[in-house]
């Protein structure tokens, strides 16, 4: 109980929230880097995944991409960036690494979502004389929405988690609170930082679930 109590004590101390290495600044860094990376990853992955799903090509690539993504250690990729010339480019190494890790789940889920759309519905739409564009926007995309949103959620959580690991190579973000605690043998601070990061990840997951429910255009859940 002692350490957890002290961790809450650390969180309750206003001094730990202000300044360059305070919680607010680290949180802002974390959200900035994650937000940019998720945005870029969406712009890259969604059109490609949706288009591949629409034309029905590149399936093996699209599906295996997310499995390959699991095999590559985030920490090693960040470390490689940090010993390359990218090191002196501010937040860029973290953003690039985050984009790399967010693209696979987004692309795979977009592709799978498009392919899982009931073929008979697609055939019926074609039979009604819909063009490729109409089919895409008015039939496939609305029906694929559920899986695409699932991919977006897991991509966002992936990004938040990876942004934490950036601290291990000296980049900014909430993880720095944890590593700073490790370096000064301050276990309460380590636990406080871990609680903050875990809470942020769960909060983002929860917000995305809620946003998905509230946004218009949510049809009946896809039958599984």
């Amino acid at each position: 109980m002692g350490v957890v109590g002290k961790a809450f004590g650390w969180l309750a101390d206003g001094a730990n929230w202000s300044g360059e290495s305070g919680v607010w600044h680290r949180l802002a860094e974390h959200l900035l880097v994650s937000g940019i990376a998720l945005g870029v990853a969406c712009v890259v992955a969604l059109p490609v995944g949706l288009w591949l799903g629409h034309v029905g090509r590149g399936g093996a690539l699209a599906v295996n991409l997310s499995n390959v993504g699991r095999a590559v250690p985030v920490f090693a990729v960040l470390a490689l960036f940090m010993v390359s010339p990218l090191r002196s480019a501010g937040y860029l190494p973290t953003v690039v690494a985050l984009v790399l890790f967010a693209v696979p789940p987004l692309l795979t889920n977009a592709y799978v979502g498009m392919r899982e759309v009931d073929r008979s519905v697609v055939e019926a739409a074609r039979g009604m004389g819909m063009s490729g564009g109409q089919l895409f926007w008015r039939v496939e995309l609305p029906l694929a929405r559920g899986l695409v949103m699932t991919g977006l959620r897991s991509g966002a959580v992936q990004v938040i988690a990876t942004a934490t690991i950036a601290a291990m190579v000296g980049q900014g973000g909430l993880g720095r609170i944890i590593t700073a605690g490790f370096n000064t043998y301050n276990t309460p601070q380590v636990v406080a930082g871990a609680l903050l990061v875990a809470l942020l990840a769960l909060l983002v997951e929860g917000l995305l679930v809620a946003a998905d429910r509230l946004l218009p255009g949510r049809g009946r859940p896809a039958p599984r």
Partner: peptide, 17 residues
């Protein structure tokens, strides 16, 4: 599923005590 959401650095740190 919830466990997988927790970032690895946080997971290892939370187990530290």
């Amino acid at each position: 599923t919830l466990l997988y959401t927790i970032p690895s650095l946080a997971m290892f740190s939370l187990l530290l005590p």
